[in-house]
Nucleic acid binder design. Structure first.
Lengths: 401, 401
DNA sequence: GCACTTACTAACGAACCGTTCGATACTCTG
DNA sequence: CAGAGTATCGAACGGTTCGTTAGTAAGTGC
């Protein structure tokens, strides 16, 4: 009812300290630590740490696992975080595939599996696919799906993560009307979170990388979207519609009125998306390269040619880099992130493209930008989902005390 | 040394509860409340609240001030937050003026004074002006400057608020090299914070308005800058360079390379800034109106004419609205704020302009925008500075316990 | 075997919270 | 005008937590 919540008794103290010990234990190397380690890590006294540790052990969250290797004095017992106590799942639902990961409470991925979405899939088909895939991955990890403590789902489009609904998903027809989250929740009996896929990608980058607490992730493929981590949590905006860089309009003449997006693609997506890159390549390149592009449909061919010095390919890369830098500069001027990470299909283009982008970018900004290419690859959304599922577990974990 | 800070004993419990009671007391109507009010507000027991209240009273932070008006039962004593215990100052340093406010700990502005910056002011002159103005305002509030608990300064440009330095301030020549903050700190012997003026404006809007915890403020005058409140605190970006909407480039042909800003104004500022509005008006309007514009140099004339139906003036408003909507749409697509508040000189244009902006904006966005005009006027930056100074006081207040 | 180092265990005092109970002060009603 | 009713205030009690201290256990090195 009030602004600052008050502590209602000494028991909250115990809770606070127990969670502090738990966090110190989890952050410790290999999730094991001696009592003395935890004393210095938490700043608590030895008896306090011991008390917290025994209550963690009674709850099954920690255990004592033999003694440490010792050099002098009485050997210390090592306490260990029992990551196998529970499991979480991270799910990436894309336009063409479903990727499911199951991890333990330490975030170690125990099993993962990818399934292609059958063409013309219906809602029921999607639910069945999800069920079988999840069951399979869970079995591989040694559990059943109902054992899961928490699940997070990443999907393209605009997501209402409070209600657990997909509000708008242009890239997956019919997806926004499906009550998949509710069904999953009923089936699994655990919290199921849903989040925009790019937001999860940036969570994964933050988790696995070491890039500070303020970073911007740009998904650059057929479509373009951005996710931001601010103060160590994903920024969604008021209506979960933040980061729609793909829809900004840099082409329409200033005093004209922009046309609404026709084919579901935003203006900037039509300008530098993978589709446009391919189109430009087909238009400008000469015979042998053009044929290879037409056959494979893979723009990697184009970037390879540019790296090898092909003049037409270089010109395409140049055009794309110039355009992309213009759009990215807009977001950087507004957001001023510590670091920009580019992922998605185009990110595999390599330095041919991104050195050009960096060069163009520099002159349009007031502060220099740190532009990197993602190292996580196609797993990033599912990994971010795992991380988000883990965040939701914290509550349940401390509620055990 | 660790991630989660631990509680080192029961005394932190007392601290937590005392601050909870203090916050409940301050949030109460007129900063007075009975013990029973605080019991329901904090969720603590009556003795706990009483204990906290007596310790607050011993520290001089609260006091008991007579009984309340009562209808039945024993009349309750009212506890009161002693806002007069300390004072803070908020300072707005602009290109042409300095505005100083002194407020008590409740944020009530006790005195304020504005001083014009003499033309060709030097660093020494600025320091002297600040000293005399601050001394005067403090005297009016019944204190001396050294009695101040906390001061915050707002200034245009990019500010390193960690180091307390102005990094870049194009609109005030020579300003960035002045160690004014250090001097103020030495003189006053209290924390002196420095922050970008637009960021303070948005803090003030958040404070005085009731617009949720996620809002965007657009300063629209000669220059254009934006400030954001995210999670109830101003968002600065990694290098304190966020919100530079004025520098985005919507005009340069896409495949050309943008020219760096020449006269210190950003591309978008040159496009819709107050200067350009005046220029457009001079160019398009006919004789009587054009003369009035030339005489006064005030674009309000233009907006009045447009409201009255003058065709040329309407066309100018139309052009400006179209352009502004284009730039604002970009930021809205990226940030998705709950609410947009426009301040600065142009914001006085009224509905003639902003209805047009709203109309243009709607079609470019994925979610509708809530666009409002600031009600705070020219005091907003100084008010935000007062609020920020108050935030810094919290620590000192709870340290008294 | 003895000194030394380190880790574990138990007991004590201090501090805090919530509950309970009696005393107090004021209003309302007959 | 007096008694019932209501709400606040203050004090004492029991429970929980922490940190400190002292004593014990388990190793290493000479």
């Amino acid at each position: 009812m009030s602004t600052g919540s008050a502590a209602t008794g000494p028991h909250v103290l115990r809770r606070i300290n127990a969670t502090a010990v738990l966090n110190a234990l989890r952050d410790a190397d290999g999730q094991t630590a001696t009592v003395s380690d935890l004393v210095v890590a938490t700043g608590l006294s030895r008896p306090a740490v011991t008390r917290a540790l025994t209550s963690l052990a009674e709850a099954g969250i920690a255990e004592f696992s033999g003694t440490t290797e010792h050099h002098i004095g009485r050997p210390a017992q090592r306490a260990r975080f029992r990551a196998e106590l529970g499991h979480v799942a991270g799910i990436d639902i894309g336009p063409h595939k479903v990727l499911v990961m199951v991890a333990d409470l330490a975030g170690t991925v125990l099993a993962q599996r990818q399934a292609a979405t059958p063409a013309g899939h219906t809602g029921d088909g999607m639910v069945r696919l999800l069920r079988t895939t999840l069951t399979g991955v869970a079995a591989e990890a040694g559990i059943t799906p109902t054992d899961l403590w928490s699940v997070a789902v990443g999907t393209p489009g605009i997501v209402d993560h409070e209600r657990g609904e997909v509000v708008l998903a242009p890239s997956i027809p019919g997806w926004s009307s499906l009550p998949i989250i509710a069904e999953l929740r009923d089936w699994l009996g655990c919290p199921v979170a849903i989040e925009n896929d790019v937001n999860l990608a940036v969570v994964a980058e933050r988790w696995r990388g070491d890039d500070g607490d303020n970073l911007l992730f740009v998904q650059w493929g057929e479509r373009i979207g951005t996710g931001m981590v601010i103060d160590d949590k994903p920024y969604r905006g008021a209506s979960s519609a933040a980061g729609e860089l793909g829809f900004i309009d840099l082409v329409t003449d200033l005093d004209d009125e922009p046309k609404p997006p026709a084919d579901g693609l935003g203006a900037f997506e039509r300008l530098v998306g993978a589709g446009e890159i391919l189109r430009l390549g087909m238009a400008r390149c000469d015979q042998p390269l053009r044929d290879r592009l037409a056959e494979t449909g893979d723009i990697a061919v184009l970037f390879d040619a540019a790296a090898a010095g092909d003049e037409a390919a270089v010109s395409v890369v140049d055009t794309i880099a110039t355009r992309f830098a213009r759009g990215l500069a807009v977001q950087l001027l507004i957001m001023d992130p510590r670091c920009v990470i580019v992922g998605g299909g185009v990110s595999r283009a390599g330095d041919v493209l991104f050195d050009a982008v960096r060069k163009r970018l520099g002159r349009q900004l007031l502060v220099p930008a740190d532009l990197r290419v993602s190292a996580l690859g196609v797993n990033n959304v599912a990994l971010g989902a795992v991380r988000m599922a883990l965040d939701a577990v914290e509550e349940r974990l401390t509620a055990l005390l």
